[in-house]
Each structure stands twice: as C-alpha cells, then as structure tokens.
Design a protein around this nucleic acid. Structure first.
Length: 566
RNA sequence: GUCCCCGUAGCUCAGAAGGAUAGAGCGCGAGAUUCCUAAUCUCGAGGUCGGCGGUUCAAAUCCGCCCGGGGACACCA
C-alpha cells in the first residue's frame, strides 16, 4: 500500500538544536560545511559503543575538500571536543564522528521529564494548526469488527500524536446512514420480524445474517408488533425497522468505542448531506469551475484534471447520486471548515478510491497533501495456532467487543499497534492472554508496575518516599546501563515526534518495548534500595521516576493503562 | 492490460527516510532465584536482505529490468 505521509522528514527538536550548534562551530574553521548542511544527518547509532550521536559530516565534506573522510573527521573532532555538551568525541569507521553526551546534559533531561510528567516532550500549546482526523466511520448496520477496532486505535493514537506535536485535532465519525446498506438492514430486520410468526417469509438474499438482527426483530415483535403489522405499506414498515435498528446499532457502536477509550468530537451524518442540500452545493461549486459535464445521460466530474485515471460519474442516468457525489460533498464541507489538513483512516480495500477523491478535493483549490489517508489492512485472528475464520455474511465473526472482553482493552490496543497499519496483522489470542514476558503488553506494563513496587518497598524499608518531590546528584549514575537509559530517555520526544509526522503510530509500541527492556535489564543487574549509600539510592530512584514518567507518556498516547500493581 | 503494495533468520516482523559487524520477539540449545515481583534476566547457534544491473565515499534502503505473492482499477457502498 502507498504510504501517504508528510513529505518533509521529521524535524525533531533535539536533533535540530544539536545540529545547529555543531554546524556553527565547524563553519568557523571549515566554511564549506554550510553548503552540505542540509544533508548532515544526526543519527542515533544502534550500538552504544558508537556513542550517543553519530555524524556523517566528514563523508559529505570528502568531495568538496578533496580529502579522505577520516582526515576531515579528525579535524572536526578537535573542534567538537571544545563543546561542553559532549563528554567525548571519537572518530570511527571510515569517518564517522561519534559524540558522547555529558552527565550534566542528562541531568537537565531527567529534570525536564519529572516536570513534564506524562506529557514529556509534548507541545505546550496546540498552535501548529487545526486538523481533522476521520476514522472508524463504520456503517451502523452491525457491531464493530476487528478491522474497525484497528482503525479506531490507529486513528485515535495518530490523533494523540498530532496533539503531542502541537496540532488541534478534531476526531470525526462519518455515519453512513443513507443508501442501500441501511435499506438492507431494514429489510433484514423486517424479514426476521415476520419470520417469528411466519417461518416461510423470505429473507432478502443479500441481507444481514447476524444474530443481532434476530434480537432486534424480537424486540420489535415484543413492543411494536401491532404498529408494524398495521402498516399497509410494507415499505413503511421496513423504513421503520431500518431507522430503529440503525439508531440502536449506532448507540452500541458509540458505547463500544467509549469503553475502548475512543471518543469523537463530531458525528457527521451522511443523510444530512442530502437533506441539507450540501451535495447540490458542492456540485454547483465544481460546475462553476467548469469541471462538470454530461455524457450518456449521466453527470460527470473531470477528476482527470487532477491526476485521476478517468472522469467519474456523480449523478447516474437514473437521476440518483453516486456514493462519490456524497463523498465530494462531505469533503467540500470539511474544506469549508478551514482545516490545515485532514486525515482519513480507511480500510485498505479503498485504496483505489483515493486518487479520485484527492482529485475532487484538489478541485477545491487545496494542495495535494491537504488530504492524507492512512490505510488499515486486514486483521486475522489466531487461536491455538489456527486462524479463526470470519464471515460477516454468514454471521460468524468475532466482534471487537468480544475480543476486548476476552483479552482486555490494553492487549487489543497494544497488539493493534505492533505493526504498521498498512500491513496484515495476525492477532494471536493465546499470546495476548499469556501472563509472561512473551506477551509484550505484560512486559511493558510490568516495567511500570515494577517501578511502583520498588517505590513502595523503598518507603517500607527506609522510610524515604520516592513519590515525593526530591532532588538527586545525577553525576553518581556511572553505570553504562544508566547512561544508556538516560540517552534513550533523552531521545524519546524525537522518536515520538517522528512517529507522529510519519503517521506511524505503531512505532510507539517499539519505543515502549525498548524502554521497558532496558529497564528490566537495569533492575536485574543493580540494586536500587541501598540505604547505606543514600545519595546513590536517590540518584537511581530519580532515574527510575523519570523512566516511569516516560512510560506513562507512551501509555497515555496509546491509551493503555499504567498498572501500578500486578 | 494499467496502477499500487509486499518479498529481510525456521516463524512473525523491525530497520531512526542512504551509513559502521543487517536487528528484535517467538521457536531451538545452554544457564541464572538465601534477592526491590523469575510476570524477569544472561549467553549461543541461525542470513546470498527475491534476482541482475545502475547511482556514490557508502544501498536492505534510491533508480531500471526480471521473478514470486497480494490488492486496486464500477453509472457498488
């Protein structure tokens, strides 16, 4: 699937700040550095022996200076060694410059984390722009299934991420309450209603088979039997069933999402688009721009003007609107609301639909990347190593609600975020239920609970309560593991911002897992409760407290519970 | 036919938008508990990054061609 994200690479704050400083120093002796400035990469090496930050500057200067990268690196090393942000500067490999951050730098990082708490690194003000994220948008014709759940998590977490980097986000659910699906819903419910008294009453061929349809029919039979049977016109009865079922199912959807921690600011009704004349308004707008014409008795829009393969019909020859017409009107409405950009979270099966919608939207006069789409691939459920086959048509499928009831909200969210939304996801129910390190959800939650446990134990044993505000001397944290932890903590805002800008919320699970893993290692190799060395104890607890806040920041973004006791 | 996505360890997948010896989890093999939670950790084996060219100091990553898998191309919603 195509990845539609911001074309500009992430400009993370910390890396940019460091880069500016470094370039400033180098340019004093090597002015050529200004020319290759944009290509300088501030990298966080995978291996700690390569330092906290790696620079590729020497490679970039090789050509203009006509010297070997290693020689240039040596020269730059001497310049950077004078800067106090770095405790050590090394030249390695063919010309990498590895920088080691100093303890005083880390002290400021930890302090900042404890001040910002579970909003570590988050934008203080939502002044970067106002955007709209539309997701789930399930037809109110049945319960939410796993695909919707994945879309809900991805849409919600991506919204959180946008807020983290400073956007004001409006979450929107588009209710497909017009058209054939709702009609089928009404027919299905009505047929089940009639079958209660007359089992031979025909069920519509492509109707909805789920048990919930029967339940609704039974409810109607109990409370609205006379009313429905007295309707002379069957169509009227079907409409009544449709309306009743739709409202009920929509309520259920809302409740399921709420329990899942997902809430919307706007519930937008498709039906209202038509009744309020917004479709005609949008078509009129396009007509004035000369993008509308008639052919073969239908009305077409010239989407080819904006990169679509072919023009598209918006009013069929029978006079009714196509679904596309509704979508154009819907997006015209969003356009008029004045967002800086909008994001749509769609099932991957709508992939081919994107160019045409983008074309229509571009006709409104917005740039190409004003509309962005995140595609959600299929979720397959596995139990006992076997795929749990799902079919909505036959009515045999596991709903989102059932899955949450079985494995818990946190596991569902976490598992939905383990892979790029763009790739197929295998959901292993057995793994999600395991209470061991194999289960990543337990693993990360346990890290948090463990820190809480250490704090409780500290208070118990020493009388010192780490939950209170206190200060510590970070210089005492001399272990390699501690340095690695502080380094990782310092880069977390960059990593989150990166995930936000690339629209890859699944990176949050990776960031979280890595932090948890590093902490577990620390726990297993060092003692934190050391009353005979109170200063060291406080320094370590101070670090633990920062780790806990960073975990909480990540949990908060994902919507996962920071469990204090397990 | 046109277009899009994918191909990395036995399996599931990462790979900080071109960097150092390609990583993790599971699985496999070997170990650790008088201990703040073993719901944890340590070590090891395992690779032609689908193939062939190209771009450059440097390619799993960018470009071209080929092979294999999946998907999209409605006056459906």
């Amino acid at each position: 699937m195509i990845k539609y994200y911001l074309k500009k690479p992430a400009r993370s704050k910390m890396k940019e700040e460091i880069k500016e400083k470094i370039v400033e120093q180098i340019s004093k002796e090597i002015p050529e550095v200004e020319k290759i400035k944009d290509r300088i990469k501030i990298e966080i090496p995978k291996e700690d022996k390569f330092g906290d930050i790696a620079l590729n500057v020497a490679f970039l200067l090789a050509k203009p200076l006509k010297k070997k990268p290693v020689e240039i690196a040596g020269q730059i090393k001497e310049i950077l060694e004078k800067m106090e942000d770095f405790s050590k500067v090394e030249v390695a490999g063919a010309g990498f410059i590895n920088l080691f951050l100093s303890r005083s730098y880390y002290a400021s990082v930890l302090k900042r984390i404890l001040e910002e708490k579970d909003r570590y690194g988050a934008a203080k003000e939502l002044n970067r722009g106002r955007i709209n994220v539309e997701f789930v948008s399930a037809n109110p014709t049945g319960p939410l299934h796993l695909g919707h759940g994945r879309g809900a998590v991805v849409g919600n977490v991506q919204s959180n991420l946008y807020q983290y980097i400073g956007y004001k986000v409006e979450r929107e659910f588009y209710i497909n309450d017009a058209g054939n699906q709702i009609k089928k819903l009404g027919e299905s419910v009505y047929a089940r209603f009639r079958q209660i008294e007359d089992p031979t009453y025909p069920f519509p061929e492509d109707g909805y088979h789920g048990e919930y349809i029967k339940e609704i029919a039974e409810h109607l039979h109990r409370y609205e039997r006379e009313k429905l049977l007295s309707m002379v016109d069957e169509k009227q009865a079907i409409d009544f069933c449709a309306e009743f079922a739709k409202e009920l199912l929509l309520e259920r959807i809302k409740n399921d999402l709420k329990e899942f921690g997902v809430e919307f600011d706007i519930w937008f009704s498709e039906k209202k688009l038509y009744t309020s004349g917004k479709v005609d308004e949008a078509i009129q707008f396009l007509r004035e721009k000369g993008l509308i014409y008639e052919k073969d008795g239908a009305v077409w829009v010239k989407t080819t003007m904006y990169g679509d393969d072919k023009d598209r019909v918006i009013i069929k020859s029978d006079g009714t609107y196509t679904y596309f017409a509704g979508d154009i009107a819907y997006h015209y409405d969003k356009f008029k609301r004045g967002y800086d950009f909008i994001v749509n979270v769609w099932g991957a099966d709508h992939h081919g639909y994107f160019p045409r919608l983008r074309a229509a939207v571009m006709a409104f006069g917005v740039p190409e990347d004003w509309i962005r789409v995140i595609f959600i691939q299929l979720v397959k459920l596995f139990r006992n190593g076997q795929e749990v086959k799902m079919s909505k048509r036959s009515g045999s499928f596991v709903t989102l609600k059932e899955l949450i009831e079985e494995v818990g909200k946190d596991a569902v969210i976490y598992f939905f975020l383990t892979k790029d939304s763009n790739t197929h996801l295998n959901f292993d129910i057995d793994l999600a239920l395991k209470k061991s390190s194999e289960n990543p959800v337990y693993y990360v939650q346990y890290a948090h609970a463990r820190i809480c446990s250490v704090f409780r134990e500290t208070k118990e044993r020493t009388g010192f309560d780490p939950e209170q505000d206190f200060t510590a001397d970070i210089q005492l944290l001399k272990e390699e593991t501690e340095r690695v932890l502080m380094k990782y903590l310092s880069f977390i805002p960059d990593l989150i911002a990166d995930a936000a800008e690339k629209q890859q919320p699944h990176k949050l699970t990776q960031i979280t897992y890595q932090l948890a893993s590093e902490f577990h290692y620390y726990y297993n190799n060092f003692k934190f409760i050391t009353p005979d060395d109170e200063n060291l104890m406080k320094a370590r607890l101070y670090l633990l407290k920062a780790i806990r806040e960073a975990l909480r920041t990540l949990f908060r973004l994902m919507g996962i519970t920071p469990v204090e006791r397990m």
